[in-house]
């Protein structure tokens, strides 16, 4: 059903016993919704600010975070879609930009990104 699918796997270095936060930025004036899963369990997502990943004191090393951002093209002037994942609280703050275009107006792009928290 998706017009465009982007799949990738990335590493993000975390500190021992320290949770991290994630901010998802959906660009190109498009609308997107995000679902998160940490080691197979859903994580509630905050669409307008940072989302904490892990409980206070939790050691996130050797965890796998799945981030699925589904973007609908609502911008009549562009078929570009872009998603940037901003991580804070790890060894360094890092941003992971992704972009893909849908084939036609009102199309759907799915970003399925796996993060290995190292």
């Amino acid at each position: 059903m998706d017009d465009a699918l982007l799949s990738a796997t990335k590493f993000y270095d975390v500190k021992a016993n320290t949770p991290i936060v994630l901010v998802v930025e959906v660009g190109d004036n498009q609308v997107g919704g995000t679902a998160l899963q940490l080691n197979g369990s859903p994580v509630p997502f905050n669409p307008i600010g940072p989302t904490p990943i892990g409980a206070p004191g939790q050691d996130l090393r050797r965890s796998v975070l799945q981030v699925v951002t589904t973007v609908k093209d609502v911008n009549p002037k562009s078929n570009h879609t872009s998603v940037t994942h901003h991580f804070r609280g790890g060894v360094t703050d890092e941003s992971f930009p992704f972009e893909v275009s849908v084939k036609a107006d009102k199309g759907i792009a799915r970003y399925f990104i796996t993060y290995i928290l190292a």
């Binding site: 660009g27 609308v31 570009h80």
Partner: peptide, 8 residues
């Protein structure tokens, strides 16, 4: 061009 920092 793509505008990754222009959110709705």
């Amino acid at each position: 061009v793509s505008r990754p920092h222009v959110t709705w």
